[in-house]
Amino acid sequence: MATQHTRSLGRIAVAPSVIALFLWMIVPLGMTIYFSFLRYNLLDPGNESFIGLINYQYFLTDPAFLKALGNSLKIVGSVLAISVIGGTLLALLLDQAIYGRNFVRLMVIAPFFVMPTVSALVWKNMMMHPVSGLLAWLTTRLGFEPIDWFAHYPLAAVVIIVAWQWLPFATLILLTALQSMDEEQKEAAEMDGTPPLSYFRHMVLPHLARPITVVVLIETIFLLNVFAEIYVTGSGGRAGNMPYLVYFQGLLNFDVGGASAGGIIAVILANIVAFFLMRMIGKNLEG
């Protein structure tokens, strides 16, 4: 019962957590904005001075910026494509009544629970290592030269690692959606003589539109922030994305002001991406 009284009481009740969350967000953001206007170098402490938009100018004109931005978008785009398409296929597979289904499902979900740092190390040293890696062993057994992933295709390697982590998430969400499909609707389609591919196109895909939207929105937020996989595998030099560039500015160049400016630019860019994303697919979430 949302009467006037209970509503104001409700506001008072949630106020502490709302205020805490607001401060949680606004204090770091405010400090970052503040630092981004300073000349603030860790090699020269105590000599901070206000320099206006110079940090922004340097950051935006740095050739590393466009490259990092490109890498960010490539990582987001590729991982989204792999996890949505692969997730749909895996979900279709796992929706079948197969023997040991629950165990298989658990195994499929498992990568999602592995820490990014750990999975990056495992992939780098046990899977993709050109000498001792499993993939190298496989390719040599098949009579090919082993691929040195991180030397030649660092971005692809990072995409594979991140996709491996996010594929389970997409699978899980899409599988739950598939299981909520109406049985009688399947049977009606069967009575209508719908071949499997048409069934997928006309029944399954429209049914999955909404969960796919959710997957894309959530994954985009997290994928823009991928850092551990790049840092741990040491592929920041060529596969570095925006977060990595900010790290590079702040902790390798000791330029806190420049890093802050980069952080603010990253926030703005993320908001632009989110805006277009919502515009493009947000209508799927209505009705």
Binding site: E184, Q185, A188, M191, G193, T194, H202
Partner: peptide, 18 residues
């Protein structure tokens, strides 16, 4: 089913929602 030449009306109607 589709080749038996029969039509079925379901309890839940089973219309295609989209």
């Amino acid at each position: 089913p589709a080749q038996r030449g029969l039509s079925m009306v379901f309890q839940s109607y089973a219309l295609y929602p989209h």
